[in-house]
Design a binder for these strands. Structure first.
Length: 521
RNA sequence: GGCCCCAUCGUCUAGAGGCCUAGGACAUCGGAUUUUCAGUCCGAGUACUGGGGUUCGAAUCCCCAUGGGGUCACCA
């Protein structure tokens, strides 16, 4: 019989979901899904105070947005409840008692200052620090006396110093440590609370976790955890330490501590700038409230789960040498731990952009409209109720924008179609260059305006022909009129095809805008 | 510093002894298409950290060096 795979992700309630953590969670989730196993969410809130629920919001939200559901955990429950570490202390207590009773852990009465001194001396002597087990020398009577006196103590797990401990990591292979170099870790604080390293072991075992898939920085914790598992009589789970994600252009772990440094990295600058441009329009603050290390940044900017998921899966994992675009379903089907790359992977915004672009282009028009609409409403470019005529315009704009649309919020770059003719602003630079500084612009604009009053139908193909004929008969270059017209009608030098723009606006609005430009000379 | 991990184009990666004069993708740079921007198409350059082995043969196996990183709490 083969036991079903059970993996877990155990975030602490930090108030946001880290993109690197999301990638770790994804790998654990993928392994469960690939094998038809179970994925568990467990909350590591041992040292958190009140606001756990609030701090958890963005984390659940990230999972839900990306469609990574959990089979057991908060909200859904499960056979190993509770899924909050803060509510599991009886389990930890029982485990400590067991170790204590079996002599596999001991009460250490040494004061912190004493320990600090030991450590200092070891350092001075250039020797690896290993705690001195003074309390182990105490007689039972002495220990009883100390406890009766209310002398504080911690519980330490007794490392079998005469051994070596080895694990066979599913991505790293055989890794071995010499126990004689390991200090006895504290597993229970003097205030009676428990430490992560211990709680994790108890939880993983009680929840029947078969595969501990986590970031590489936990590799150093693993010997201790393995030893505790063994002392508790648990079977060892399979460990799989996946490499962490590094910051763009760096070899260091991508951490939110360094966001301010990241802001200036050339690779990430664009992402911060985009946040500062878009979020204020949406009433969501700016790059200080949401930045590219948070999953929510991508959601709020209108990235697609498929784009993010594709990018995240390809960071440290590949199907083969050529496949770049994979749906979640593809990845689930092909995901194996052995194909995880051992070296850290740099987070590359450009590459993410390309995955995103691919998946956006796969989307049918209707889905793009549905995706963009909330952004237009949120930016108050369309009013709450979306009537058919509004929707019609949105459809037209998005068709014209075509594959310029990479993320849904890009639609905000085309707000000229959604503002009143009188409210539309002209960008100064192109207005100067294409209209004021172009001596023939006024005349050409007036002539074309004349023709626009009568041409029918007022659609892109007809307008295209009209302008080309106009160019022909007046013997000018097409650029001379096109640029002027574009600025006059949209206020900008870049955007959708000019004839599309005119057709979307329609005759009335186009003429009004041309008049405004003319008046503005 | 101790312990541990890692090492192929700028970046993500393919490569599990001969198929490698090292493949793909992103980015970059050319060129084409074009009313702008984007896109698309075509093309180019760019990498096995170094040194020793093993072998007829090494990017691939072993050793050493170097470099990078992680971790060393009564944090998680």
């Amino acid at each position: 019989m083969t036991t079903p795979v059970r993996t877990r992700f155990a975030p602490s309630p930090t108030g946001y979901m880290h993109i690197g953590g999301m990638r770790t969670a994804l790998f654990a989730w993928l392994w469960a899904r690939h094998t038809g196993g179970v994925f568990i969410l467990r909350i590591d809130d041992t040292d958190q105070e009140r606001n756990v629920e609030a701090a958890l919001g963005p984390i659940f939200r990230a999972f839900e947005w990306l469609g990574l559901n959990w089979d057991e955990g908060p909200k859904v429950g499960g056979p190993y409840e509770p899924y909050y570490q803060s509510q599991r202390t009886p389990l930890y207590q029982a485990a400590v008692d067991k170790l204590l009773a079996e002599g596999k852990a001991f009460k250490d009465f040494d004061a912190p200052e004493v320990i600090a001194e030991d450590r200092k001396q070891a350092e001075a002597a250039k020797k690896t620090y290993v705690n001195i087990r003074r309390s182990l020398e105490l007689s039972d009577a002495e220990k009883k006396q100390l406890e009766a006196d209310g002398k504080p103590f911690v519980v330490r797990f007794l490392i079998p110093r005469d051994q070596k401990i080895a694990i066979d990591d599913a991505v790293r292979g055989h890794v071995e440590w010499d126990c004689s170099l390991m200090p006895d870790p504290v597993i229970m604080r003097s205030n009676g609370s428990f430490l992560y390293n211990f709680a994790t072991v108890v939880d993983d075992s009680q929840m029947q976790i078969t595969h501990v898939i986590r970031a590489e920085e936990h590799l150093a914790n693993t010997p201790v955890q393995a030893l505790i598992h063994m002392a508790l009589g648990n079977p060892l789970p399979v460990f799989a330490h996946i490499p962490f994600i590094t910051a763009p252009g760096s070899t260091k772990k991508l951490s939110k501590r360094d966001v301010e440094k990241l802001r200036n990295s050339p690779q990430l600058k664009k992402m911060f700038d985009r946040a500062d441009e878009v979020f204020p329009q949406l009433g969501l603050g700016d790059s200080k409230t949401l930045n590219p290390v948070m999953v929510e940044y991508y959601e709020r900017l209108g990235y697609l789960p498929s784009g993010i998921l594709n990018a995240l899966s390809r960071l440290g994992w590949s199907l083969d040498g050529t496949t770049e675009f994979l749906s979640l379903e593809d990845v689930i089907q092909n995901f194996t731990l052995e194909r995880i790359v051992k070296a850290p992977a740099g987070f590359d915004p450009e590459k993410l952009q390309s995955y995103q672009q691919y998946w956006m282009n796969q989307l049918p028009l209707g889905d793009k409209v549905t995706g963009c609409l909330p952004f237009l409403t949120q930016a108050r470019l369309v009013s709450g109720e979306v009537d058919d005529s509004t929707r019609e315009i949105v459809v037209k704009v998005i068709s014209a924008v075509a594959d310029r649309l990479r993320v849904f919020s890009d639609i905000l770059d085309y707000k000229e179609f959604f503002v009143d003719d009188e409210a539309m602003t002209f960008d100064e630079k192109p207005f100067q260059q294409r209209l004021r500084d172009a001596p023939e612009a006024v005349g050409l604009l007036k002539s074309v305006r004349e023709q626009l009053t009568t041409v029918t139908p007022f659609d892109a193909a007809t307008l295209d022909k009209l302008v080309h004929d106009f160019v022909e008969t007046s013997g000018i270059k097409i650029g001379q009129i096109v640029h002027a017209l574009r600025v006059a009608v949209t206020g900008k030098s870049v955007g959708v095809g000019l004839f599309d723009a005119l057709a979307i606006l329609g005759r009335e609005r186009s003429l009004r805008r041309i008049d405004r430009a003319l008046e503005r000379f």
